[in-house]
Amino acid sequence: MPDRTLDIAFWNYDRTRPLADGSVGIAGVEARYHTAQIVPEIFEAMIRRRAYDVSELGLTYFLRTFAQGSSPFLALPVFLNRAFRHSAIYVNAASGIERPEDLVARTIGELALYGHDAGVMPKGILMDEFGFRPERNRWIVGGIDFPMEPIDFVPQSHPADVPVTVAPKGTDLGVLLETGEIDALISADVPRCVLDGSPKVRRLFPDAEAVERDYYRRTGIFPIMHTVVVTRELAEREPAIVRAVYRGFCEAKTVAEEDLVRGLTFNSMGVMIPWLSDLLLRDRELLGSDWWPYGMSANRAAIDAVLRYHHEQGLTERRFTAEDIVVPYLLDT
């Protein structure tokens, strides 16, 4: 019997490269792999045109597809993009913002859309730990210093009491931050003014890595940004194929992990990052040997946090559970 042909899309990550280059196969599947210059282009193609059978999708983009009640997609417990996000909050150095409590009544920029994946987590953490309330701020949504089309393929939901405006196309929120036209910025991508070392901007948490490591020690949460979804039809009609896809992603990640660990023997010379081996060892000491986990059992707390924050921030009408969004027969992974 010929293999089932599937179109599968994701960005160019080390944990997906073994799939894309053919070194890891998916049993029973002839895969056609797709990518894009920036990952929102993948999201748009999947949501707007159902361009793929299997696709990377930002969690907030995925959750917004439930706006009409039932999403056309279900998630695999595969998390291609995750990041600690205290470091995603930037402030103008002259704004007087020295600590999270100083964010009250400020104008804050946010990349791409209100409640983008790298915005949901830091807002939620600020709400949990510092009494932050988004409705007490003014929000401006826009791009930074690279071309990005407006996000118009998912609902732009936000509570009525949260003032949100969309910046004109071509506006660079990083420039607005540096000039003081906005007081703070939450962004998945690092603005040019920060990369250039401008003295006019800085992170809200100056030693963000230490704060993020402490957050993990206290909560056990490694924040999830993106998952992998399959069409609901595929999940319902071909469970054996979907299970094989899940196993393929897991195997590809294992190959990437083993490659990094093997490189420790040779001081990670294959990568041009000084002290990388020490960083990997410190990360494994804190996060464990499976420091980028897939499957449900290792990710319940991280998934629940995103779902709670999404609801508390008014991005979804109800608080979802993992059982609402994940392929049912993969809940025991």
Rank of each mutant, 00 (worst) to 15 (best):
L19Q: 11
K200Q: 15
H34R: 11
L103K: 04
P328W: 03
A210W: 05
F66Y: 02
E317R: 08
A208F: 12
L103D: 00
S187E: 08
R82K: 08
L74A: 11
F266D: 15
A93Q: 06
I26D: 01
M296N: 05
R217N: 10
A244C: 12
A36T: 05
V154C: 10
E44G: 06
I108D: 06
G115N: 03
V166S: 10
I38M: 10
F130I: 05
V211M: 06
I97L: 12
A244F: 01
A51Y: 02
D290N: 12
T321C: 12
Q156A: 08
L195T: 15
G22E: 04
R192V: 09
F320M: 08
E285D: 15
G109L: 05
A9I: 04
A67R: 07
R232V: 03
E238C: 08
R99G: 10
S23Y: 09
A93R: 11
L80I: 09
V104L: 10
G96E: 00
A256Q: 02
M148V: 12
A94M: 10
L234V: 06
R218D: 10
M127L: 07
I108H: 03
R138H: 09
W139M: 01
A252V: 04
V230I: 03
P77M: 00
G119Y: 00
P147V: 09
I186K: 06
D189G: 14
P328Y: 02
A252W: 01
R318E: 09
V175Q: 14
M272R: 15
F222K: 13
P77L: 01
F146L: 11
R282F: 09
V162G: 00
E181M: 15
A184C: 08
I42L: 08
C193L: 11
P100A: 06
T321Q: 07
E178D: 13
D152N: 15
V104P: 05
D3Q: 15
E238I: 01
V326D: 02
A302M: 09
W139K: 01
V164P: 06
I325C: 07
R300G: 08
I140S: 03
A45H: 08
A75I: 01
T321K: 13
V228A: 12
E236C: 12
T165N: 07
A160D: 15
S268F: 11
